[in-house]
Design a protein around this nucleic acid. Structure first.
Lengths: 198, 198, 198, 198
DNA sequence: TGGTAAACGAGACGGTACGTCAAGTCTTTGA
DNA sequence: TCAAAGACTTGACGTACCGTCTCGTTTACCA
């Protein structure tokens, strides 16, 4: 027992395979037809993973879809890094806005909506998607703080909500477009403040 | 149409009665168990209005629920008017935040989520709820502009999104609490701006 | 509206068409592959009647199958009537034995077995099959009694059990064949008695 | 067949423990909740014998349950022996009837029913239960024959079916009660014959 | 007495069917 | 003519249990 010839068996390989297959199938289905297409039966059929197994890995269909979506989106919106912290943040708002405006944004909205109804899925959506996005913004925000440009009294949390909450709200209700100029207006207003400066 | 000698035999009343009854039943069901409880069959059963009739008045169950909710909420959050436009707006953010934090906020979230899936219902939600809210904020915003406190270059639309988008985002994802102090932090950041003033 | 103000509305005539279609499909499936083939989904697919509707008409899949089987078997074993009551009864035992020995007997056994597990279905099997069979035997038995050949102290119930219980027992356990000679042996033993006559 | 030097390797001893544990667990589960409770997983969990092992010892869950039941019931209904062969047989019918009427009779019915669906289990039920019961009756029957009371032309097989088939039929369909008086009626009719004696 | 092959424990997996639910459509009936 | 009543189709959901399979461990015989 000198060395461990088979160190990998730590993780039941079979389980991992089923898990990965399911996520992959879900990802494809989400891309093809959004959340409505990511039916449990469809995922099961396409992945070869049985329904029963799916429900052993995830508490609900939405949770599975949320993880699949989150994992795929992990690197979907790379952070800009031009050396100008403020410009980077503004650019990120533009990118996220464009992301929400596109077909993937539709899936995001469906998932966000589904989590309202499905409390079991919400943690998955947070863990695999939202937390990642939030962490990315925190990086940008910290750069601003470090550069002495941002009020250190404002948390990254609040900054994130202020910058992206409006975009999401618009995406959900469709009451206003998600164009670049609108994104800029929001970013600008958030950064400069709504009140007039003397 | 001088006067109505035979008020009841006229046709319109029947339709109007059914409409009102359905909305009333839906309102009660929403209050009791949220959107999930406002089943078409439940609304039909409680109101005495047949399902077929419901579908003649609304394109979908969600649309009906949205109208019922919107009508009831019309005057749920009275606008403050203390003479101090900024304080009024801040107070309104607090009130709306409290509203979202409560049980009615849950119904709001369910409706907002449902409209993502149901395009037919979205216009109803906008017309009977969102537009009213938005108009209310416009009033407050206009006071700020008139008082020379707000940047006139920022539209009421943007201001509304910036102030309430974050609240709604939090309500949906539950990633941050909806307390008064949080509401104040958001209002303050939105009004003053995220960037440090030199 | 002289009389019978509300005679019919007592029982809303549940869509006879759906009922009949379902039974017909079930009957065919039973014939093709026995009870295991008479899946709810299969019945639904073949009949065009939705699963939800099936479960509104019957409490369980087995109940539906039992009714389908019972209705079809209603006239499957015509009563002999040669004028000789005893010969008629013996002939009937032979016929029933042959029935049990055949493919239809297999379905009978499956249904009987399923009703052990499914209490909701048992009443259907009794009402639509067993009762009919029992009534038929009662007729033959009554002829014997009328002819003074049978002990009037023995009920038709007991006679039926004695004549057919053994056949069913054999069919279920397969411990003994269901041939004509075996059927005759049983009939003979039942009629004459197990004990030696002095 | 000189001698068997290593007769033991035929049966691995370790096997015996697992075999016994499984049967014991199955027996307990049958007693607690009937066949439906004797789930493969439940037997495995309670006995500590893995599912894989269970399926190495028995071809199906029902077969296992059948053996467990049969072994336990082996001596459940002791044969009466009063010296009066006919009275003994009648008494036995009463005892068996009471047995079927009780909770254990329910398990018997479930097992009998399950064997209809599961051909692999039927041999186990026969070997471990039915054959034993049948052999017991043969003993009683032989006494009658030896005493010259029974028709030697009637096999023990037929006699058994005639006496107990009706009881089992009743137990399965529930169309008639399983009381002592009913048992007596059946025994009497079987022994004396259905036809009137001149 | 250490090695080795069968047997075992644990439990994930694929599969089949079940029974349930709500949405939205359509037909019948009554006033 | 309109609406109440309510049956129907559709489509998906989540669950249960079966029997198989893999993997790592234990046991018991054998060299």
């Amino acid at each position: 027992m000198a060395e461990s010839p088979v160190p990998s068996p730590v993780l039941p390989p079979r389980s991992a395979r089923a898990h990965a297959c399911a996520l992959s199938a879900a990802r494809d289905l989400l891309a093809e037809g959004g959340l409505p297409a990511a039916t449990v039966d469809a995922i099961s059929a396409r992945s070869g993973v049985s329904k029963a197994t799916l429900y052993k890995h995830w508490p609900s269909r939405t949770a599975l879809a949320a993880e699949a979506f989150g994992r795929e989106m992990a690197d979907a919106i790379p952070l800009p890094d031009t050396g100008d912290p403020r410009a980077d943040l503004e650019e990120q708002v533009r990118r996220v806005s464009a992301f929400y405006a596109g077909p993937t944004g539709e899936v995001f909205a469906q998932l966000l909506a589904a989590c309202v109804t499905d409390p079991l899925a919400a943690p998955f959506f947070r863990e695999f998607f939202l937390d990642g996005r939030r962490a990315a913004i925190s990086v940008l925000w910290q750069r601003l703080v470090d550069a002495g440009l941002a009020s250190p009294s404002v948390t990254a949390e609040t900054a994130t909500d202020l910058l992206f909450g409006p975009l999401i709200f618009r995406r959900l209700t469709g009451h206003a477009p998600l164009t670049i100029s609108e994104a800029d207006a929001i970013a600008s207003a958030a950064l400069e403040g709504l009140l007039r400066r003397e």
